[in-house]
Simulated scan of single mutants.
Amino acid sequence: MSKSNFMLDTYIEITLYDWTDASTIDLAFDEIRRLESLLSVEQTGSDLDRLAKAAGEEWVEISPETEEVLRLSKEYAALSEGYFDVTTGPLVSLWNIHNEQGHYPSQAELEQVLPLIDSDDLLVKEGHAFLARKGMVANLGAIAKGYIADQVKELLVAQGVEHAVLNLGRNILLIGDKQEGTAFTIGIQDPNEEEGVLADVVSATGKSIVTSGIDERYFTYQGKKYHHILDPYTGFPADTGLASVTILSDTSAQGDALSTTCFLLGIEKGMALVEQLDDVEALFITTEGELIPSSGYSNYQVQQ
């Protein structure tokens, strides 16, 4: 049983392999809708929208889910030397990269927004959050999809689902294995080729597989492509020699945050971070097409 929908700015497909009750998938999509209404800064009245509007003025009451994601985001900011930073909201808005359209900012525009980016100025206490300076915006685009996938998995497992694939764009989250007891196989897009051309294939059970890459969202300006993974220090799309990072981990929130973090850190620092984390593997693909796996990645690789 399968159902798809356009939500979270991507096509989402949920497939249940051991299930006949259609209302269960509807519950899952209702949960995505509910969480998006809290976590999307682009939805009027969401926790993130209200947080941005009150920036520099007052604390905002937030849901337990928003609090959890904001706290996680601050943890990854610390882990990543500040490269993972959800307060890049003003920068994301400035570039405004959607549907192969975007805005190439002037130096003056960048100088206006870069001082507004600092996770240390995102304050969180029980049930409340505060952005310390007017003009600051928290945008959870680099972690919310993963967090939402984890929550939906939890909901489905509580319903009794044992075999399922949640596909939230390039966030794949697996529940168990296939009904016959074999692992799921997941293709990893080659970021340097057209959609559907695979760089590799992995086999996994119950895992999260998340990819961030230059081919997801971009626009062309004066003959050069500019992608959506923005460096909070320079204000420009990260230029680290990487074309994509795929993370295999236990939770999709971790995979989401780490795929962005490693892309921004670059090959050496990014892989060093992966290697120090338990139960996390990665495949880095360079702009030259080289595949760089983490030490345990071959355990998931389907030999072709």
Rank of each mutant, 00 (worst) to 15 (best):
I32F: 06
T260Q: 05
T220P: 04
H103C: 13
A199I: 05
E68A: 15
L174S: 03
F236N: 14
S80T: 09
E42D: 15
Q179I: 14
L265I: 08
T287Y: 02
L39V: 07
I188C: 03
P105T: 14
V274G: 00
Q254R: 14
E67I: 03
D9Y: 10
M1P: 02
T44N: 15
K125Y: 01
G206Y: 09
V274H: 00
L168E: 00
L131W: 00
A257E: 05
T205W: 10
G223P: 04
D279L: 12
F219C: 07
L273P: 02
A138G: 01
K74P: 07
E65V: 05
V137I: 15
G296R: 08
E67W: 04
V165Y: 07
R33S: 15
N171A: 06
A55Q: 02
K53Y: 04
F284V: 09
L39C: 04
T24Q: 11
E36C: 04
G160W: 10
G169E: 02
D279K: 15
T251G: 05
G102N: 10
K74M: 09
H103Y: 15
I175T: 05
N99E: 08
A238H: 00
K178H: 14
K207D: 07
Q254C: 10
A272C: 04
Y76V: 14
Q43V: 15
Y221Q: 09
K269S: 06
K225F: 06
V210K: 08
F219S: 07
V152T: 11
I25Q: 06
L38S: 12
L291Y: 03
E13V: 07
K178G: 02
C262T: 06
I285G: 04
L140T: 09
D9C: 09
K225T: 15
S106H: 03
P237C: 08
L156M: 11
E268F: 08
E36N: 13
K224I: 14
L79S: 08
G213Y: 08
F184W: 12
E288Y: 09
D200I: 04
P90H: 12
A132V: 07
L166E: 01
T15I: 06
T260E: 03
T234Y: 03
L38P: 11
W95E: 08
S80C: 10
H227L: 11
S37H: 11
L140W: 04
V92T: 14
Q112A: 12
E36Y: 04
Y233S: 10
L122R: 06
D21L: 09
G181N: 06
S46C: 08
L242D: 04
I209H: 02
M7V: 11
E100G: 03
A272P: 03
K224M: 13
